[in-house]
Design a protein around this nucleic acid. Structure first.
Length: 411
DNA sequence: TCGGCACCTGATCA
DNA sequence: ATGATCAGGTGCC
């Protein structure tokens, strides 16, 4: 059984428009939440495991402690949950505001209600996003897990099942119990624990690659060269720009990671992290990627953020997350067996006069255009509550884009 | 200020 | 089967 001392389930009234748990916990803000049941998510916090479930009207929460809490102590898990999910922010009215300001937002956001920003611990957020560079979400999660297992504090274990016991524990379920497994939970490592001399070597052995040095260096900088509680002071005592600058000092932290930390842990709602996805959105839907800003330089990075802040206002970072999430393919809850085939067709090869006035050196540009058809077929299996496959269909999605190859010649 | 390249690793695709 | 490319970038020249 579960090793630990679980409180009973509490609940907060909240609609799916305000919070969509399954989306928010998997859209790449935090990399640590695990599916502990078919509709139950759990994560290690500093002194307890917190487990969550959601139905259309309520968010359910409970804590599991490694040792029995003293009878007199009041359980503050509800406060932690309210804070972690930024529940004082009315998301529905923000969606209305962004939709009014931007037709593209209105179009895209319809399917993705309840995407809100978490309010994470700044230290955890910083290290998590240092891991994210040149990396994919799945591996980032694995790396953060290894980090916690190696340097975090064990918090006990939960029994993971593919079926949930009922919330109001009436009957001990003897039926429907396919292969439950024990999963250990850990806290996120302290700053000091990542300053140990062996950290870089250990993390390299664990597959962190060049990020091992970044993590170790950053831990040392925060621990040795900054006042105690420094990262938390960036929340209240510094504005967005100041906090951003302060974060850039750390090893492995560039503008994108700094913005992630500002947005997801430091209450800077206007910070817009521009990564490859957001850059794709900006070029596809907001006319970036041409002329002056062809590639994502620092100046263009700032221009993209400024554009979205003008469009969506001082909560642009929250809005950006909705579109980012809408663009993520990774809503693979019931999606399995994705097959992608790419068909390239050479359409035309021509020589054009260079239109770009920015670089007068170049008179001519050969442009080859190819239409690239990406055919993505997904086998979708819908499972019932018992885990049985109820139906199976294949969705075929065709993406078409034009690729341009340019060869520059001097006239 | 801009472009180019190296950097760890594992998955995916041609 | 094996090489190229990509994945929520950063640092350095």
């Amino acid at each position: 059984m579960t090793k630990g001392y679980s409180t009973s389930w509490g609940q907060l009234p909240i609609s799916l428009n305000q919070l969509c748990l399954a989306t928010v916990l998997r859209c790449g803000q935090s990399f640590r939440w695990k599916l502990s049941g078919p509709d139950e998510w759990s994560c290690g916090f500093p002194d307890r495991i917190i487990s969550l479930r959601q139905n259309p009207t309520h968010l359910h929460y409970r804590a599991t402690y490694p040792s029995p809490p003293s009878p007199s102590s009041k359980d503050d898990t509800e406060d932690i949950v309210r804070d972690y999910f930024n529940l004082s922010v009315d998301l529905a009215s923000l969606y209305e505001k962004w939709s009014t300001a931007d037709p593209n937002f209105k179009k895209k956001a319809g399917e993705f209600r309840g995407v809100r920003m978490l309010r994470q611990d700044p230290w955890e957020c910083l290290i998590g996003f240092i891991c994210s560079s040149n990396n994919n979400i799945s591996r980032i999660g694995q790396m953060v897990d290894k980090l916690c297992m190696t340097y975090g504090k064990p918090l006990g274990s939960l029994t993971h099942t593919s079926t949930n016991p009922p919330l109001a524990s009436s009957t001990p379920s003897t039926i429907n119990s396919p292969t439950p497994t024990q999963v250990e939970y850990y806290s996120f490592p302290s700053i000091e624990s990542l300053t140990a001399p062996d950290v870089e070597e250990t993390l390299r052995k664990l597959g962190f690659g060049y990020r091992a040095k970044y993590i170790y260096n950053t831990a040392c900088m925060v621990h040795n060269d900054r006042p105690k509680g420094f990262l938390n002071t960036l929340r209240d005592e510094k504005n967005y720009k100041e906090a951003h600058e302060a974060l850039l000092e750390f090893s492995g932290v560039g503008p994108k990671v700094a913005d992630c930390v500002c947005l997801m842990s430091l209450d800077k709602m206007g910070a817009v992290p521009v990564d490859t996805h957001v850059w794709q959105i900006a070029t596809r839907d907001y006319k970036f990627g041409k002329g002056k800003h062809r590639s994502l330089t620092k100046a263009v990075y700032d221009a993209v953020g400024d554009h979205f802040r003008e469009l969506w206002g001082d909560t642009a970072g929250w809005a950006h997350s909705v579109l980012f999430t809408a663009d993520l393919r990774t809503f693979a809850d019931r999606l399995e067996n994705t097959k992608t085939t790419t068909v390239k067709t050479k359409v035309k090869v021509e020589v054009k006069e260079e239109e770009d006035e920015e670089d007068s050196e170049i008179k001519k540009e050969e442009i080859e255009e190819e239409v690239v058809k990406k055919v993505e077929s997904k086998r979708v299996r819908k499972r019932g509550a018992d885990g049985q496959v109820k139906s199976e269909t294949t969705i075929v999605k065709v993406e078409e884009r034009t690729e341009r190859r340019t060869r520059r010649r001097r006239g």
